[in-house]
Design a binder for these strands. Structure first.
Lengths: 195, 195
DNA sequence: ACGTTAACTGAACATGCGTTCAAATCCTAG
DNA sequence: CTAGGATTTGAACGCATGTTCAGTTAACGT
């Protein structure tokens, strides 16, 4: 029978994923070796293969988990009419992304490190997330509360603007999370013509 | 005396830089080998070292040249009062970045592949470019024609929004460069409260 | 106390890396 | 035509890579 107590695998698995996450975010997937990941967890490289099929799967699972978590967290947000929905999306995005800088960084810098099949799967998840905002913008435009010339472009522009927060925000800095949310909400709101 | 005609070095140097640019943008610095760069130009790996001290310098020079070109092109733009200056900056940024997707991609994805000294130099150039926009926003805010709560954040938000165009724009696509410029100008303008 | 098995080590494999350099090749100047 | 320098080759260097696997270790259920 399998060991149910004291087994290291319940602990080692997450520790490996966390070390990989940190190192991939810091140095990039291609620049990180399996030996470095193993070393960060106090293992030999061979031991990693009890937890992942190969290096590529390790990256893919990190990205898939992140995108999955993002989408389910988003699904738990309440629905609302366009203006409130936009505010909800903006605040959710800022909060979620600020809390997970490493996952966000990887999910979007290491797309090119995925093989074709894995890339397609992550890309689909990303598109699903973008569709959330695009839907809000389209509904708002139709209702006449937003002014967007091109919903697709506006979607990508707003997401790019919001995600940019991760390039500079550091907790304990000059601005609180609340203040950052407010600033971005005001800019996003005005950008799509919602007075 | 040095050969003045028919010398390959005048041709080979640029060809190496262009191949490195393409490959670095496509696969990432760490994932590209000197042999692959040489192969793309029809050379053996050793020949590259007539043109660059090492792989790191090759990357640094690509990035430094790009940032230098960006800053001098920007310096050639006419000055204007805040609103027109903002429009000028937005259109310039969109135009310049759409024309050089590979340079832009590298200059901002491969910062972490630079050693400490090279990183500091590129970072300084990037900051100088950001200061251009920040100055415009501050002047406009002071003059009461813009409404920005935090000039630094607004600067980074607008630049992130504009640079995001490179993730989706493809020439020959649905929108012309002119239309893209217009859309982003309208969004940026409203985002900073310039009616 | 014992046998079972999950967890891990440590060495090995083939391959690729960045870089160096003597030798070969090519082209120009005279 | 030849001398000489610019340019490139091709092999070699030491080291790192991802992955495999027989063997060791240690904790569990019985």
């Amino acid at each position: 029978m399998a060991r149910t107590q004291g087994s290291h695998s319940d602990i080692t698995g997450p520790r490996i994923r966390q070390a990989a996450l940190r190192l991939f975010a810091e140095r990039g997937y291609a620049a990180v070796s399996m030996r470095q990941i193993a070393g960060a967890v106090g293992l030999q490289a061979g031991a990693l293969y009890n937890y992942t099929a190969d290096k590529q799967s390790l990256l893919f699972e990190l990205m898939e988990r992140h995108m999955g978590d993002l989408l389910s967290a988003r699904a738990r947000e309440p629905e609302a009419e366009p203006r409130a929905a936009l505010e909800g999306f903006v605040r959710f995005h800022i909060r979620y992304h600020i809390a997970r800088p490493e996952e966000v960084f990887i999910a979007y810098m290491e797309l090119r490190s995925l093989d074709a099949e894995n890339f397609a799967r992550i890309e689909a998840l990303r598109r699903a997330y973008e569709d959330e905002l695009e839907g809000i913008l389209r509904r708002g435009a139709q209702a006449g509360v937003f002014e967007v010339e091109d919903a697709k472009v506006a979607t990508l522009a707003v997401i790019a603007m919001l995600t940019g927060v991760n390039t500079w925000y550091r907790s304990g800095g000059r601005l609180s999370l609340e203040e950052v949310e407010d600033i971005y909400w005001n800019m996003a709101r005005r950008a799509v013509g919602a007075g």
